[in-house]
Write a protein that binds this DNA or RNA. Structure first.
Lengths: 225, 225
DNA sequence: CTGCTCTTTTCTGTATACAGAACTCGGGTG
DNA sequence: CACCCGAGTTCTGTATACAGAAAAGAGCAG
């Protein structure tokens, strides 16, 4: 593995795990010393993270971790919505049925196992495998690249909303609808089920964000009227 | 301007203008000498171009200009379709009417001026201004970033199909429908008009590609049955 | 004549030195 | 007391040196 990859992975994980909160500043020499590398691979890692949008460049004065405001999350989902609908739609027409029949069974089983609170990690892992199976089946490189670029930001957004059992159960039911559409080879069903899932997911995240920041909650309530 | 920006812009333009055809190899030292720079900014430019997908890295052995096959163009539009529909939809609900009323008038006028073959460049410039106005109005950073990343590839695809007057006239009418939807504040109309425009645009490009490569043309004809 | 292996060459990946730009902080001035 | 100017410091941006890996080519063996 190249040193620049190491640096990229380390910095990315640190940002995603919240070690460096939004607004935290990064300097090249500082990180080079921390990770025991020279500035060259650090520079490359910074450039990649900035291209992804996790860092923003302070023209000539280093980088800071990008903000993840309520508005940013809304914009994130304005893109995610159409990407995942298109992916679901294409996967429904291009999938290998066997793969998704198996996944459907697993999601069915998850409806039960989510009763136990320690089944949560297994559920996250199941969702990750569904994503991977869809990535495999979609056969559309640009679409794949676009959703891949979004995922780190989604991971950060997810961290803001601590999932509760009810939400996870609802999420499992929504995923089941998506997989059903894929198994049936029904692009519209898959896309619409995805739309529903993401609208609810966004609502859940925004509710958590608004609870943390009362002012924004009031704004949101006004907008909803 | 930084040297790495210079290198990036120069290499990008050379690729987009077809100076380096798909498959052409790039070495760091070679380009550093050609552009009179050291390897460091060249490296940075290569990394950016590879992230965009214009170059592909040959793990440890330089870069080559990426291919732009028929299949790649189809995949390009599988993403472009949903991005531009979403953008049109959001713009229709967020636009400043005055800006787009003015653009509508210009597209109306273009229907006339496109009769003269030397009005072509002016038309391309008008389309570019519509894009810019929509970029301005969409107010959705991730969506904007996604379409921006696609544009170099679209420029390459467009080069494959030499536009004829009939296609440009049809394109102007299609754009007029999109702008109408935006002016009317009708997201659905704007999105559907965009969908129509892009489907026809893809068809036009693929026809040109297939004419250049007869085998692919036969394949396409078979698929169409 | 073909295929394998070893040598040579050339390239990337990394470290580091150097220069110039931007910020900071202190002193002076209005 | 506030503001401005300038020296100093610290950072990025660029050039370059060096090491290691991969490919190309020559030579030898089958």
């Amino acid at each position: 593995m190249r040193a620049s990859d190491t640096a990229y992975a380390a910095l990315r994980d640190d940002i995603l795990h919240g070690e460096f909160p939004p607004g935290a500043a990064f300097a090249e020499v500082e990180q080079a010393q921390r990770l025991n590398l020279s500035r060259t691979p650090i520079r490359e890692a910074f450039a990649r993270l900035a291209a992804e949008g996790l860092l923003v460049a302070l023209s000539g004065r280093g980088y800071v971790v990008s903000e993840l405001s309520r508005q940013t999350i809304v914009e994130l989902f304005e893109l995610r919505q159409v990407l995942e609908m298109q992916i679901a739609s294409l996967v429904a027409s291009r999938r290998d049925p066997a793969v998704f029949v198996a996944l459907r069974d697993e999601f069915s089983a998850a409806l039960e196992s989510l009763q136990h609170p320690n089944g949560h990690d297994a559920y996250y892992e199941l969702v990750a495998r569904l994503d991977a199976a869809m990535d495999d089946a979609v056969q559309s490189r640009f679409l794949l690249a676009a959703i891949r670029q979004l995922r780190p930001h989604l991971a950060r957004a997810r961290r803001l909303a601590k999932d509760n059992p009810e939400r996870l159960l609802a999420s499992a039911r929504e995923h089941l609808m998506i997989v059903d559409g894929i198994v049936d080879g029904d692009p519209e069903l898959a896309a619409h089920a995805t739309s529903i899932h993401l609208k609810r997911s966004l609502k859940h995240i925004l509710a958590a964000v608004d609870q943390a920041a009362p002012t924004a909650a009031a704004d949101s309530a006004n907008l909803a009227r």
